[in-house]
Amino acid sequence: MMRLPLFEFRMPRTGEEVARILDGEGSNAMVLAGGTDLLPNMKRRQQVPRTLISLRHVEGLSGAQLDHGSARLGPCLTLTEIARDARFRNGCSALSQAASLVATPHIRNVATLGGNICLDTRCAYYDQNYEWRKAINFCKKKDGEICWVATGSPKCMAVSSTDTAPALIALGASVRLRSRSEERDIPLADLYNNDGMNYLTRRPNEILTEIRLGSLHGWKSTYWKLRRRGSFDFPVLSVAAAVRLSKGGVVEEARIVLGAVASRPLVATEAAKFLVGRPLDRESIEQAGTLTAKLAKPLDNTDFDMSWRKKVAAEFVNYALRELRGDDMRAQRLEVTRYLPDVNAD
């Protein structure tokens, strides 16, 4: 059996206390929310924090407040809570879909939104037991020198594998980070670096305290996830898209985000810009797909062949935009997810 390493355990009650501990411990401490990402990493000795800070009893990190203008989500909302909450089905259905497609029902029952946003980047050379990593003399991300995905690479190429972040970025989300001395709000897109090791711009002494969504009036959004099986698997490609359409069906605003093909979610600015002022017809959808897929640089460190993942990217953008146009995409959903995701509805 695999055992956790020893650690010091803290159970603070307030965000302030968390910030204080983080301030003292820095990167030696890690916060424990759902634990579904951190605990396996600890068992495999990928992450060996000296101190674990449980968020279980910290006030004010759960719950969701939705006014007609905006929404404030607690980072400790579980993915199940999001997937089940009917309030997330309209403008922010991308979030609802993304949350409902993470891992398995059991994991979603404890995994949190904040945890998924901060999910450690993943890699075939990194998400392995200690013994396995010893057999490759470790890798750049942990205990080693070389990034085995691209041996000449100066940086780590581990993959951003969060489902909810692409969806939230497409929805224009921002996050609030709190340290002992300050509180700052940044667009969620700015939380990420395209670097598998330093993939978050969060400072070691900061805690994510809130996720904010602006007005989603008039927006439609969707999330498509590619993975081998109907559950368990992390995305190997995902597309989140959101559009605001005029009454005549012309795109007034659009956001397209690619997940799991780089060390961060990739915002397809050019494709989104291209769509503005055009109807979602076949040509514009295809062009947006081509422009978006150009960004994808999948590498050989996840499931599936990397060149195939790139080929499929345009097709997935196509699915997403057709769905936003109002096409009935249930057959394609069924093909990809093996069930129609509204089964999560209460």
């Binding site: 075939a124 099986r229 109907g230 559950s231 368990f232 499931d303 997810t337 093996r338 069930y339």
Partner: peptide, 11 residues
């Protein structure tokens, strides 16, 4: 058991 792909109930 995550990356050795074994069909799930949905597959």
């Amino acid at each position: 058991i995550l990356e050795y792909k074994s069909p799930t109930s949905l597959d």
